Amino acid sequence: MESSPSLAGPFALGTFAADGPAFPGLVAGDRVLDLSGLAPDTRALLERWDDVLPLLHDATGAWRPLDGLRVLPPVEPRQIFQSGANYRTHVAELAVAHEPAGGRPAEQVRAEVAAMMDRRAAEDLPYVFAGLPSSITGPYDDVVLPSWCTEPDWELELVAVIGCPAFRVPVESALGHVAAYTIANDVTAREAVFRRDMKEIGTDWLRAKNAPTFTPLGPYLVPAAFVADPQDLRVTLRLNGATMQDESTKDMIFDVARLVSYVSQTVELLPGDLLLTGSPAGNGLHHGRLLRDGDVMEGTISGLGSQRNRCRDER
């Protein structure tokens, strides 16, 4: 098989639909092979990943042109876990953006935040919260901006997709539980992140992150075997053609292995579960330009393909 454009490796997995029911498919170049004979969906394939992956290299059958198929979210997860404040430059930018007018100088804020991140890294304390599968939408579908949301923002992120279940796994073996990687845009209602009515509660991720369509996912699941180093990928988001995010995953405070291990100490990660690894620098809050009706977001991660989503005001 020839490599698909912009994808690492000879093939990837996705979920597709035409006139009938959705089906799992093997995508290579501009064609798709229906895999519903192997399993009803991609999550079922991930549940047998060690057995399935060798079969995909030699898969045969009637190929269909990719053009004309609707590309759906590549997997339906049971659980979603999201890492916050995991890119050094991003955390510093947010701290400066949230500093009140007339407050501390930007360089002082950055120095204090850098010291805080060094402490977190030394103490091995990632910050992870849970998301809802109902927020997921397709890689080319519209993102609907709720009428109540006044500060919608983008956050393009690398996603680790679990294959073999993981419970209390050490860092050294954690990547062995990652079957594939994909892309998510973790759209955020910035005004809802911090509870103004009771600061002691802290963050309100339910309202800030989980509106319908707030998590464009995909386009595909690229097998981890084809991704040489998840800590050396370029994350780029363009808004109406202008580059807003352009950062390497090298800037992560906690790498993918540490995140998988950390989450698995509390819960069992299951096949198809998603672990969003955090947003790099360049969000709208930093640029002073948040999402509006008609905006087009184009997100790319090297080797994982691209997604394109138009924003639509629900009003």
Rank of each mutant, 00 (worst) to 15 (best):
A224Y: 05
V260E: 06
L239K: 02
P77K: 06
G202E: 09
F23Y: 07
L158G: 04
A184H: 05
E155V: 08
P223L: 02
V71E: 04
G294E: 03
E314K: 08
A59N: 09
M117N: 14
R64E: 15
G25Q: 05
Y220P: 05
L269T: 05
P165E: 12
E268N: 13
D246M: 02
W154L: 12
R64S: 12
E247N: 08
T249F: 05
F81M: 14
M198N: 15
R110A: 09
D30T: 14
A18W: 13
G176T: 04
P24K: 07
L66N: 04
G284E: 06
L53R: 13
I253E: 01
L55S: 10
P40W: 02
H177C: 04
D41I: 09
D30Y: 09
D51E: 15
F254L: 03
P230S: 09
L239Y: 03
M117T: 15
R78C: 10
W148Y: 13
H177T: 08
A97Q: 07
D295S: 03
G9H: 02
P24D: 06
F254A: 02
R315A: 07
E123G: 09
T203F: 12
L158S: 06
D34T: 08
I301R: 05
A85T: 14
G84A: 14
E157Q: 04
T236C: 08
V52S: 02
G278E: 09
L33H: 01
L13I: 09
V96M: 07
T182N: 00
D67F: 10
A179M: 14
A189I: 01
R70A: 13
R196A: 13
S248G: 04
V96W: 03
L158K: 00
L233W: 00
A224K: 01
A242R: 13
D204N: 15
R48S: 14
A179R: 05
L158D: 01
S134C: 14
P230G: 00
R258A: 09
R48K: 15
Q307C: 11
L237Q: 11
